[in-house]
């Protein structure tokens, strides 16, 4: 299998949530468009990072990709097959090909099952022969670098970092093609987080699995991703190669995000000029007309209120009428 092969393709995906309902309860009062037309693709063995501030639609997008939520429109194409049209039975057969790891492993691991039972359960669902399960579990626990003793423990008896490793072990146990990781290290202390990130990088090399890595921490996303998409209010506003995006961001929002990250270098940090965004994220119930970022954009013009910019470019794509380096800030923020 060549690594140039696209394994996951998301096409113009949108997800609406009904908010409130009319008196009869037959129709929602409003629709909240949490994901508003997102497209990207991931190659085999590659990590695509999705970043953006809370509420921009990252988790909703992740859940739609897994069909844990049904998208309102658009397609999710897994290895050439559109999975948005599959019924539940067909989807079940595909489940093992695409897995998810959540931020809080506690809520996704069965509290009354030991680690061994949790991992066995997955293999049973994947129709792995009982004789092979024992050996496979030993392999898994070694792969996620945990001592064998944890096999007989319950989730609550383990530390956060250990639990997250179990979540990862369960996800890889089915030999999936794609794993969606939704803020997998956000709840962990930095010293623990580093180990999990290294583990993910190593596992990916070894298993050639594709990751969709969702996080709000840009440093973390930069560390693990080959390519990155920056989301704002349900849209990808800029996407491209991780290095290109961080070294030469073209969208004013990406620039502001990068400039807001505190760097662990006092001298640079003290001298640094910041792009300060005004105000907060608008409500997705009532997004601004035209460009969704215009209410906070330091570069906004009249055109931005009228026309919604398309995501355009080759390789490095930007959704902005006036893309380009920020003239006020020395290029790149570090």
């Amino acid at each position: 299998m060549s690594n140039d092969e696209t394994v996951l393709k998301v096409v113009d995906l949108a997800k609406d949530f009904p908010i409130g309902s009319n008196l009869l309860g037959t129709r929602p009062l409003q629709l909240l468009r949490a994901v508003a037309g997102v497209s990207f693709s991931v190659k085999r063995g590659e990590t695509y990072g999705l970043v953006g501030e809370s509420g921009c639609g990252k988790s909703t997008l992740g859940r739609c990709i897994l069909r844990l939520l049904d998208p309102t429109s658009g397609q999710v194409i897994l290895d050439g097959q559109d999975i948005t049209t599959l019924d539940e039975r067909e989807m079940r057969a595909l489940r093992r090909d695409i897995q998810i790891v959540f931020q809080d492993p506690m809520s996704s691991l069965h509290p009354k099952m030991t680690v061994r039972q949790i991992l066995t359960e997955g293999m049973r669902l994947a129709n792995k022969a009982p004789a092979q399960r024992e050996a496979a579990i030993d392999d898994l626990i070694e792969m996620v670098q945990l001592p064998r003793e944890v096999l007989d423990r319950y989730p609550h008896e383990m530390s956060g970092g250990q639990r997250q490793r179990i979540g990862i072990a369960r996800a890889i146990s089915l030999d999936p093609k794609v794993i969606v990781l939704d803020e997998p290290v956000s709840a962990l202390d930095v010293s623990i987080q580093a180990g999990v990130l290294n583990l993910l990088r190593d596992l990916q090399k070894r298993l050639n699995v594709a990751f969709v890595f969702i996080a709000h921490d840009l440093g973390v996303v930069r560390y693990v991703s080959d390519r990155i998409g920056v989301m704002y209010l349900g849209r990808i506003v800029e996407t491209g190669d991780a290095a290109a995006l961080f070294d030469a961001p073209m969208h004013p929002y990406t620039q502001a995000l990068l400039s807001a990250i505190p760097l662990s270098d006092p001298r640079t940090e003290r001298e640094r000029e910041r792009i300060m965004l005004e105000g907060d994220l608008p409500s997705p119930l009532n997004p601004p007309s035209g460009c969704r970022f215009r209410t906070r954009c330091p570069r906004a013009q009249a055109l931005c209120a009228r026309e919604d910019p398309m995501l355009e470019g080759v390789e490095h794509l930007t959704a902005c009428h006036f893309p380009g380096p920020n003239p006020d800030i020395a290029q790149t923020c570090f």
């Binding site: 930095v190 010293s191 623990i192 987080q193 580093a194 180990g195 999990v196 990130l197 290294n198 921490d217 840009l218 440093g219 973390v220 930069r222 560390y223 991780a242 290095a243 961080f246 990068l258 990250i261 760097l263 662990s264 270098d265 923020c333 570090f334």
Partner: peptide, 14 residues
């Protein structure tokens, strides 16, 4: 242990 934006290639030490 902290990811460095200016040196993303540098392996983190847990």
């Amino acid at each position: 242990a902290m990811p460095k934006l200016d040196r993303p290639e540098e392996r983190l030490v847990a």
